[in-house]
Write a protein that binds this DNA or RNA. Sequence first.
DNA 1: ATTAGCACTCCCAGCCTACGAGTGCTAACG
DNA 2: CGTTAGCACTCGTAGGCTGGGAGTGCTAAT
Lengths: 349, 349
Amino acid sequence: MADRKKAILRAVTDDYITTAEPVGSRTIARKYGLGVSSATIRNEMADLEDEGYLEQPHASAGRIPSDKGYRFYVDTLMTGRDLTGHEEKRIRAEYERRRDEIRALIRTTAKMLGDISQCASVVVGPTVRTAEIRHIQLVPISSETVLVLVVTNSGLVEHRVLSIEHAMHPSDLDRISRILNNRLRGSTLAQMHGAALREIQAELSAYATFLDQMFELLLSAMHSSDEERVYVDGLMQLLAQPEFKDVGRARPVLEFLESDDLVLRALTAVGSRGLGATVVTIGSENVMNELQSCSVISAPYGVAGRVVGAVAVVGPTRLDYSMVTALVGYMAEGLSDILARLDSCESGE
Amino acid sequence: MADRKKAILRAVTDDYITTAEPVGSRTIARKYGLGVSSATIRNEMADLEDEGYLEQPHASAGRIPSDKGYRFYVDTLMTGRDLTGHEEKRIRAEYERRRDEIRALIRTTAKMLGDISQCASVVVGPTVRTAEIRHIQLVPISSETVLVLVVTNSGLVEHRVLSIEHAMHPSDLDRISRILNNRLRGSTLAQMHGAALREIQAELSAYATFLDQMFELLLSAMHSSDEERVYVDGLMQLLAQPEFKDVGRARPVLEFLESDDLVLRALTAVGSRGLGATVVTIGSENVMNELQSCSVISAPYGVAGRVVGAVAVVGPTRLDYSMVTALVGYMAEGLSDILARLDSCESGE
DNA sequence: ATTAGCACTCCCAGCCTACGAGTGCTAACG
DNA sequence: CGTTAGCACTCGTAGGCTGGGAGTGCTAAT
C-alpha cells in the first residue's frame, strides 16, 4: 500500500479512536497536515473504502475504519507505545501492597485494568485443578471439623472445611498431612486419582473413610472453585463509551461479561498461544456473537512457563489499541513476575 | 383512611408495579372490580394526589404512586406473601451444595437474589475484624514462608502468606500457634492489641520479630479484607427494568453499586437494627443521593445474636415489595442458619 | 354520594422542512 | 497524470407542526 494511503488510514483511525465521530476528508487535511488537499484525500478514502479498510455509516457522513481497517492498523500502522510513567507507577504501587494474597491481587488487577483502559476488564485467576501442589495440610479446628488446606505453586491457597464423625488426634492429622505431602507434592489435583490415591489409601488404611471424604471434598472444590476464577470490572467505563449509550446495544456484551463460564471459556482459548503473546481480536473476528461489536485484547500470564490465567480488556472496536495493548501486556507480565517470585520462594525449601 | 381509598391506592400500586405504566381510572374500574365507576375512582384518585400518595408524571396521564404512597403501601396495604415452593426449593438446593466455603456461599446468595428479584443484589460478607476467633494456626509452607490461618466463628477462613527471614522449626510454629490460640480464642482481631499482645510478646519473647511481622500482617489483612466483603450481582437485571432504559438514569446507581466502600457503608447502617429486621427504604428516604430513584430492601444476618453482614436488593421504587421482602428475609435467615450450624459445630470442641 | 357525559389538556408519533456536513464528479491546472 | 477547486447532490438530524389517543376535571343528572 502506498505510503500516503497508509498515512490517511492511520489518520482516520487515530482520529476516530479519539473523537468517536466519523471523520471527513476536510478534517484529515486540516488536522493531520499531509500536504495534500481534501479532494485528494477524498479520492484516497474512496479507494480505501473500495478495498474494505474504511466504511461509511451512511451516505454522506465521514468514514470510519472497518474491522479490516483496524486489523491493518494494529498489524502495521500502529505506533507502539509504552505506558506513561504515571500509569506504571500506579500499577507498581498497587502491586507492592497486594503481594500476600493472590485473590486480592487479581481483583485489584481487574480494577486497575478497567480504570486505566476506560473499558471493561476481565482477569481469570489461576485454577487449583492444574496447578502444582506445593503443600497440603490438615488443620484441626474442632473435634468435628478439620480444615483441608492446599497451597499451589501459583500462590493460590484453597481451603475447605471437612466435617468428620470421629474426633482425630492432631498427631494423626500431622501424620496424614506428611504422607499426603510426600505423595502429592509436585503433582496436580487433577492428577490426584488412580494409582496415587490407591497408594495413599494403602499406606493409611486406618483412615479409609476419612480419606474418602477428604478426596471427595477436594474433587468438588476443584470444580466449584472454577466458577470463582473470573473477575470482571469496569462495566461502568464500558457504559460510558458512546457506542454503548443505547442500552440495547450494551446488554448483550454486559450479559456475556456477567456470565462467568462463557468468559472463562473464551479466555482459556487465549492461553493456548503461550506466555508473552498479547492477542488482539477485532469485532467480527470474535467467535462469540455477543462480542462481535467489540474488540478484545488479552494476554496470558503464568509461572514456570505454564499458563495459569489471563487478563483481558473488552471495549468497542474503536479502541485505543496501542495503549491497551501496552497495558494488557504490562499487567500480564506483572502478574507473572509476582507469581514467579512466590514460586521460587516457596520451592526453595 | 377510608377503605375504598385504600383499595384504590392498593390497586394503583399493584398495577403500576406489574405494568410500569401510569394507571388511569378506567383501568382500575375494569381490572380491579371495586363496584364503582371510573368517575368515582377519578375523584378518589384526585384526593389521593392531594394528600401526596399519588402523582401524575404529566397532566393527562394516569397516576403513579409517590414515595409516600409506596411507604403507605408497604406499611399497611401490602399483602404479605411467601416465596413460591419453586423459589424456595431452588434456594435450598443451592445452599445444600455450598456449605463448605463461606465465600462461595455468599457469592451464590448474591446471584440468587438478583435472579429471583430481577433486580440488583448486594451481599456483605462477614468481616474478620469483629468476628470471634475460633482458631489461629501457623502452617509451615517452606523454609521462607509461613501461612497464617485465622478461622472465625462466622465461618470465615482468612489466610495470609508471611515471608520470614530465618527458618523456623515446625514445632516452634506449633508452640506459637498453641499460645496464640489460648490467648486469642474468643476475642476478635480488632481487640487484638494492647494488653493481650504484650502478654503474648512476653511469653514468646524469643520470637519477637516474627510476632511483630505476623501482627502487622494480620492488621493489614483486617483492613484489606474489608474491601472484599461486598458481592454485587444482577446489574443486568437492573438495566432490563424500563426505568433504567436510559443509560443516563442508570449510571449513578450502577456507579454506586460498583464502589464497594460506599455500598459497605450504606449497608452496615442496616445492621444496627438488629437481626431479623427487614428494612425497606423507598426512593427519597435513601440517604445516598445516587439511590434516591431506587428502593432498597435489606436485612442483616448473623450468628449468636451478633450481626455479621447483610443482604439487600436494589431496584426501582416500582418494586415488587411483597415478593422481595419475603425473598430478602428468607435469604438472611438462611445465611444465619448456616452460620449457626457452623458455629455450634466448631465450638463443640 | 355516585355516575354519565363532555370539553380540555397534554404527550407522542409521524411528517415535513431547512440545514449542514461530506461526498463524488468534473473540469482545470502544473 | 496526479492534484486541486468548485459544485451539485445525498442524507441524517433537529426543529416545528399536526392528529390521535388517553386520561383527567368539571358539571349536571340520578
